[in-house]
Simulated scan of single mutants.
Amino acid sequence: MTERVSTEPKSNTSIYLQLGGEAAVHRLVDRFYELMEGLSEARTVRQMHPPSLVGSADSLFKFLSGWFGGPPLFHQERGHPRLRMRHAPFAVSVVERDEWMLCMHQAINEQVDDPSLNAKLQRMFSEMADHMINTDGCRASAATTA
């Protein structure tokens, strides 16, 4: 009996593979942090991070690897991500969420050409970013008060 190979894209193909695997996830993370570092519109969320973004980029890469269906690197190294718990020491309002999403939105648009995958990622990240809000304070950024 011969196995038939479908030329149709598999609906159960992981996001990790759809993106292009490890190298593509690294590119997305690297671009995200380049934008956070360079965009004045992201200064509030950038200030929440340490001076060097190397550790943050490593953590995000490992988290995304597993979240996208690739190797569960973060889980293997640190256990369950527990994102809200890990972000609890930081006051995350709509300002920080919007700045974080500005960077991720642009990084996705630059890295992901497939419209349906792009839309899916935008939706996933938006839902995750909304979930990270842990304060109802809407601190005004310098951009909105200037």
Rank of each mutant, 00 (worst) to 15 (best):
Q47W: 06
M104H: 01
E3F: 00
R82P: 04
N118Q: 14
L64C: 12
Q122W: 01
R123M: 11
A24T: 03
Q47I: 06
D30L: 09
E8Y: 08
G137D: 13
H49D: 07
L53T: 13
G55C: 02
F61P: 03
E41T: 07
H80S: 07
Y33R: 06
F74G: 05
S52C: 00
N134V: 04
D58W: 05
M104Q: 04
T7D: 15
M48A: 13
R84E: 09
E22V: 10
E110G: 07
G66W: 05
H26G: 05
S141R: 12
S52I: 00
N118M: 03
P81G: 08
I108M: 11
T44Y: 09
T135D: 07
L53E: 05
F68D: 00
H105A: 05
G69H: 00
A23I: 04
S52G: 02
M85R: 03
E96T: 10
R46I: 09
F68Q: 02
E99W: 09
M128D: 10
H87R: 11
T135V: 13
W100G: 02
W67N: 00
V112N: 02
P81V: 06
F63S: 01
V95R: 11
A129Q: 03
L117E: 08
L53F: 11
S11G: 13
E77I: 04
C138G: 04
S56H: 07
T7W: 11
S52A: 03
P72C: 13
L28G: 01
L117Q: 04
F125T: 02
S14Q: 05
R31P: 08
A142Q: 15
E8T: 13
S56E: 04
Q106S: 10
A42W: 03
V54W: 01
K10T: 05
A23E: 10
Q18P: 00
R4Q: 14
R27T: 10
P71H: 03
L39E: 13
V5E: 14
S11Y: 06
M132W: 06
S141A: 13
H75S: 12
C138S: 08
E41V: 04
D130M: 07
A146V: 06
S56W: 00
S40N: 07
S14T: 12
K62Q: 15
R84I: 10
S93I: 10
D114M: 01
G55K: 11
A57C: 08
H75V: 08
A129S: 14
S93P: 13
R78E: 15
A142V: 11
T2H: 05
I15F: 04
R27H: 13
T13I: 10
R46L: 05
Y16G: 01
V5Y: 08
R78N: 07
R43A: 12
M36C: 12
T44G: 07
Q18I: 01
E37K: 03
L64D: 10
G38C: 07
P51W: 03
V92D: 05
L28E: 02
F90K: 02
Q111E: 15
P89A: 08
N109R: 10
L35Q: 04
G38N: 15
P89C: 09
M48G: 08
P50G: 09
K62V: 06
P115G: 08
C138K: 09
P81F: 06
R82I: 03
M36F: 00
S141T: 14
S14F: 01
L83K: 09
R123H: 13
G79C: 06
G137R: 12
A140W: 07
L73Q: 03
L17F: 11
H80K: 09
V29H: 02
F125Y: 07
